[in-house]
């Protein structure tokens, strides 16, 4: 499979659209079986497991999040949240086909809204992608918030 920069950029943009449209089942399929979603708590954090993060989740936890969002007794989703991603054009940091290693860097603004509240988050996302069964998949999505260490209100959907 011969991937171009445009393919990688397109992948990241389509992923954000899936989240905005809340196509979660489809979104979960973008992850490899051992994929992770990571949102560090500290700026420049390098440790995933031995210190606190906002999120460091495997497929079991990501699936649980998705299933919970539509639960009848998920009171914090009555009414439901909505979200919107605004992405800067992603930068492709690495295309390494022989090692199946692709990296994309994307600054973003993200708004999550529920009831009359609207929270704005800004930061950078880094996608580590691989090709599996002729498709691009997410090995690791890392989301760094500009103010990762500030007090936050609920973040209920996915940045």
């Amino acid at each position: 499979m011969n991937l171009t920069e445009i393919d990688l950029v397109d992948f990241v943009i389509r992923e954000a659209r899936m989240l905005d449209e809340q196509q979660y089942e489809e979104w979960l399929e973008l992850f490899t079986e051992d994929g992770f979603y990571w949102m560090p708590l500290e700026f420049g954090q390098t440790e995933e497991k031995l210190t606190t993060s906002l999120m460091y989740e495997d497929l079991l936890l990501l699936k649980s999040r998705v299933q919970r969002l539509s639960g009848k007794r998920t009171y914090s989703q009555l009414p439901k949240s909505r979200c919107q991603h605004l992405l800067q054009t992603p930068t492709v940091d690495k295309i390494d086909a022989p090692n199946n290693d692709y990296r994309v860097f994307t600054p973003f603004h993200y708004v999550e809204s529920r009831n009359d509240e609207k929270e704005l988050y800004a930061g950078w996302m880094k996608h580590s992608l691989i090709v599996e069964d002729e498709r691009l998949k997410i090995k690791l999505k890392r989301v760094d918030l500009v103010n990762c260490d500030s007090p936050h209100r609920n973040i209920q959907l996915f940045i």
Partner: peptide
Amino acid sequence: LERTAMYNRLINAPTSIVGHDDTE
């Protein structure tokens, strides 16, 4: 420590699916 850190983010974080419903 790994379990402690995991517990903290799963239960106490502003991103916690447990915390969201408590806060609600």
